[in-house]
Nucleic acid binder design. Structure first.
Lengths: 347, 347
DNA sequence: CCTGGCACTCACTAGACTTGAGTGCCAACG
DNA sequence: CGTTGGCACTCAAGTCTAGTGAGTGCCAGG
């Protein structure tokens, strides 16, 4: 714990006592939601020093930006930087046995398509942590096409149904003002299947240039598919427990702002992806650069499949959050989710 | 306007002056969010009576349950019953030209699958009204199957992809522990297609009882499809502008409760369906029976396709809401949405 | 470097008082 | 008899004034 320097503007590290004090302030503040005074810290730690000594250290911690005072005669509150230090120096803990069991149990019994599993996982996460959760299923830009089929809806509308190797299915409507016959549609379907199987959305396709109905349908269908590609590749997002936002923040305006962000799926996805790292990672306060979320902390964990990141889960709460427990939960669910898909690919 | 009786407990109707006063109280209260006093009412109406007279009428209105007093020395506030009368006797207005244009414009330019249209419509609604909106796409219990296809994912997993006449597509994973060969899967796919085309989810299917791989796959696939039927028939729900909830109510607990309800899609759907009537209809306060929403009013309008109700849109806000404008907007969007699908079925 | 002591700060609370919007009641008026 | 102005009454909300106490910063002595 004793590191190189103890200069007052040390940026990277703190001496053992300061670290202990900061830790105490964070845990106490998380518990009570109140500014923490020097005597409370002295009582909560095993430092065996007087409040006056703690005060001196707290002055230093404030000068260095780890703590802040709401007003002159109040206790201290951690700053974003304080939480950051706390999280960086947090020894990872495992989740409690009860939670562990609940997670295991969930994944043992969950059934259905991947989409359903992800959605339910999102519910699980927010139930376990009492925070809002986000589960992102990565896009399938690299998935290849297993099957493509053109289905006739009515005289002027067909539907291109495409199945990808990752188990996702997409549909695209194809207008057909000329009204090709059933036989032509069937032939176009056959050609599309032959043409698209094995390709990915980014592949270049050689479409027939003939002028007949069949060729026209094939061209229409492939262009519909590729035009929509950016959207399809876009990830699926499942948000759970958004009502928790109302509990986490007291200002109505904050609640509104956070909810408003959550409504913008693209923003949420890019937020999660920005934070996403190989391991469980955390963005605190203004670290993620989204101003309306400056009162939030976001904890992100990846979901991998055969070594590749195929998704992510995130938990969003106030900076005043039980980091240790929430991070452990994120880790546990991430692990189980990864295992779940590893054991049951494509299901 | 003059009706049968003016007995103090008249339930159905009010004499003209009382009606005018109630109307004034509602509009004023909606505007100001404050209890409305007798002098404000006297000033706002063209009744040309003194505040004292208005007071006498307000006492009667309170006795009959249309108005309430937050405390003895405050103005009056409408009760749910008061809002109900107001809404029932509201002459329908059209939306403003600007809004009308915005709605037309939206539907002129919106493109994509029905799901996308509904989702975007939900955004439009909440943007136009500043309230939370719900769009429900009806289930396709009556839609017949146009195509069914079994696609091989890997050695032990297949995917049954089904296209319905209403343009929806579903998928169901089919486990295959025995690992049938590619030829068998193709044959099963062919048989499934022949078997299922033209049927609906409620149809009874005659499945082959043979013991070979193909018959087994067919049985597995059809049972997967029919097991999931209740879920598939379940409507799609799109909720827009849930952040508006934070603006509409001041109590944090109310916000939380409402958001919590909105998270339960099944509850939302049944709420909307309960309220849904042939015309635009409204549920105020406790009328819908969902206690957490007792501070809310819900406005619902149907979306029809060829005379049949295929969906609904809802707007959820505080009981203190601009009923006239919101109802007009709901009506306008409902009309345009109906027209949109009428003109472009299945797209 | 630690500590107890001490004066100081300042949010928060409670109580007293004022204000004013709004009421209910009533007697008088057309 | 419905309407009206007058009037006393009520009560939430705002303002002011202490009083309280948690917590601080500083300092002198160990």
């Amino acid at each position: 714990m004793a590191r190189r320097q103890k200069s007052p503007v040390a940026s990277g590290d703190l001496d053992a006592r300061k670290a202990t004090i900061l830790h105490a302030v964070v845990t106490e503040h998380v518990d009570t939601a109140q500014p923490v005074g020097s005597s409370a810290v002295a009582a909560a730690t095993d430092l065996e020093v007087s409040p006056a000594t703690v005060r001196a250290e707290m002055v230093a911690l404030e000068r260095e930006g780890y703590l802040a005072q709401p007003h002159t005669s109040a206790g201290r509150v951690p700053t974003d930087k304080g939480y950051r230090y706390f999280v960086d120096h947090l020894e990872r803990g495992a989740v409690g046995a009860a939670q562990q069991h609940q997670v295991r149990d969930f994944f043992a019994h969950v059934r259905g398509e991947m989409e359903d599993v992800l959605e339910q996982t999102s519910r699980l996460l927010s139930q376990l942590t009492s925070h809002t959760s986000v589960v992102v299923g990565a896009g399938h830009s690299r998935a290849s096409i297993l099957s493509a089929q053109l289905v006739n809806l009515d005289a002027h509308h067909h539907l291109l149904v495409t199945v990808f190797s990752d188990g996702t299915v997409t549909k695209h409507s194809v207008m057909d003002s000329a009204g090709a016959g059933a036989a032509d549609v069937a032939e176009a379907s056959r050609q599309l299947n032959a043409l698209l199987i094995g390709t990915t959305l980014s592949s270049r396709i050689q479409v027939p240039s003939r002028a007949d109905d069949v060729a026209r349908l094939v061209r229409e269908a492939t262009s519909a598919l590729h035009e929509a590609a950016p959207t399809i590749e876009g990830e699926q997002v499942y948000i759970g427990g958004s009502s928790r936002v109302a509990e986490s923040f007291d200002g109505v305006e904050t609640v509104r702002a956070v909810l408003s962000i959550l409504e913008q799926e693209l923003v949420v996805v890019s937020l999660i992806e920005d934070i996403l790292d190989a391991d469980v990672s955390v963005a605190i306060g203004s670290e993620h650069g989204l101003e309306p979320l400056s009162a939030c902390a976001v904890i992100v964990a990846p979901v991998t499949l055969e070594g590749e990141v195929v998704g992510a889960l995130g938990l969003l709460g106030p900076t005043r959050m039980r980091y240790r427990e929430v991070m452990a939960t994120a880790q546990a669910v991430s692990d189980e989710l990864t295992r779940h898909f590893g054991g049951e690919p494509g299901a």
